[in-house]
């Protein structure tokens, strides 16, 4: 279906590389419920890969498998050409995979700045004893260097004026943006976004779309995106996986997917037999 052997150039001139991550025959069961049934797909370096499908299709479950929250009942996750063993989420984070959640998961008691700085955790090397000594051990120096990087992200996402605000006090749209900032702060190779625009108004959606495109363009970050708004998906993504009832029913460019009969049926609610 996708014959792109070793990368390709998109219509808007972005270079897409080889396969960065590959899901092989993933099955995920919760007791009697099968959330994911034998799904395989790949993600190429530098692309924006969307996962779409009706409610309960298993999209979030797929991200949870990638980020190590769920261990697949069957199947393998390959990253950079190596099969990944069983991993805890914090180990996955250290591989360079960051994410946001469908229901925002920020640290409400901390300021915006601290939330984003926390995102750089995997990049900060000073241990407990160095931290205790602060000035004498270079921990302060490290902190300021990272603070500088975080300020760039704050500028990039246009949230300068809420830096010191406790996250719990922010409105929904801004929280989504801070969560994106925290994920970006990790300088991830792959960014997993679970419905980054859910519940936003048109203007906020446009902002968020712009940020996602800019992140991909400027930092070359590979993005896996779950989204319900078809307009957004068609605009943003290079390739789309379509899921329905835990199965993959389509995979290809937005145009290919749009004309796929199974996909049309799923979205129009044709009875399953």
């Amino acid at each position: 279906m996708n014959d792109m052997s070793d990368g390709y150039v998109t219509a808007d001139g972005r270079q897409i590389g080889g396969v960065l991550m590959e899901m092989k025959n993933i099955t995920l069961k919760f007791g009697g419920v099968t959330a994911i049934k034998d799904i395989s797909f790949d993600v190429r370096a530098g692309e924006i890969r969307a996962i779409i499908g009706p409610n309960g299709a298993g999209k979030s479950s797929m991200l949870n498998v990638i980020s190590g929250f769920y261990v697949p009942t069957e199947g393998e996750v390959w990253f950079k050409g190596v099969k990944r063993g069983p991993m805890r989420p914090y180990q996955v984070a250290r591989l360079g995979i960051a994410r946001t959640f469908q229901n925002i998961a920020l640290f409400d008691g901390m300021s915006v700045l601290d939330n984003i700085l926390t995102g750089r955790l995997t990049l900060m090397k000073k241990g407990l004893l160095s931290q205790a000594a602060w000035w004498w051990s270079g921990a302060a120096q490290e902190e300021y260097e990272h603070r500088e990087k975080v300020e760039k992200i704050i500028d990039f996402l246009e949230i300068q004026n809420i830096r010191k605000t406790p996250v719990g006090r922010l409105p929904y749209g801004l929280k989504k943006r801070v969560e994106l900032a925290r994920a970006l702060a990790a300088e991830p190779k792959i960014l997993l976004l679970d419905e980054p625009m859910a519940g936003m108004n048109v203007e906020e959606k446009e902002d968020m779309s712009r940020f996602i495109l800019d992140v991909n363009d400027e930092f070359g970050t590979t993005i896996v995106l779950i989204e319900h708004d078809m307009g957004v998906v068609m605009d943003l993504s290079d390739r789309v996986v379509v899921m329905d009832y835990g199965k993959k029913i389509g995979d290809g460019t937005p145009d290919e997917v749009r004309t796929n009969q199974d996909v049309i049926d799923a979205y129009l609610g044709v009875a399953h037999d």
Binding site: P89, Y90, E143
Partner: peptide, 23 residues
Amino acid sequence: RGTVGRKWMAIRDMDIAAEIIGV
């Protein structure tokens, strides 16, 4: 004020999110 404190607070505020960013 540094990384260690932020890790503690991250675990306090939301342990799932803390784990996903590498805590």
